[in-house]
């Protein structure tokens, strides 16, 4: 009986610790494939270390009409990076989970103009992200809604 009580008490305390222990499992809900509202690209969000990154894995029009080759990051202000393919490009970088369905401290890259913006991600439900890119302060920004995708079997 004593042994059983000990096991029960230990299990209860362990459960409490488990419940309140800081975990990042909530943050991992960001992992997956997402589509911006314009449907022009698909972005795969992954976790590297404790941070989250998103790379382009699909482009609606992948071929550059001028070069007839896969599109590159030609608008990048760094000439050395202008020949880097857009496919595989990390457009979301350095996000950390802040709790309350929010990932912050990251940046988003707009390949259309070669600009990088501060960014915060808010998950409104399991399949929807509000991605807000901004300059300096959040009020000077724009929010795009991304939808979660699944690969068809």
């Amino acid at each position: 009986m004593k042994k059983l009580s000990f096991i029960l008490v230990f299990s209860f305390i362990a459960t409490l610790f488990w419940s309140f222990a800081p975990t990042n499992t909530g943050g991992d809900r960001l992992i997956g494939v997402w589509e911006p509202s314009n449907g022009r690209a698909r972005v795969k969000i992954e976790k590297i270390g404790a941070k989250y990154y998103g790379k382009i894995v699909w482009i609606k029009e992948p071929i550059d009409p001028v070069t007839k080759k896969p599109k590159t990051d030609k608008n990048n202000p760094d000439p050395d990076l202008q020949k880097v393919p857009l496919m595989g490009y990390r457009m979301l970088k350095d996000f950390t989970y802040k709790g309350n369905d929010e990932w912050a401290d990251g940046t988003i890259y707009d390949a259309l103009n070669g600009s990088t913006y501060s960014c915060v991600i808010k998950m409104t439900n399991e399949n929807t992200l509000n991605i807000r890119g901004y300059i300096g302060v959040s009020v000077l920004g724009r929010t795009d809604v991304w939808k979660r995708l699944v690969v068809k079997k």
Binding site: E35, R42, K44, V57, W58, V84, G88, Y89, R148, V150
Partner: peptide, 21 residues
Amino acid sequence: NTDTIIVEEDYSLYDNVEYTE
């Protein structure tokens, strides 16, 4: 440098997707 993934990945995997919602 986390700009570009330098790996072989079959991106055609993402041609055929659907919304979860």
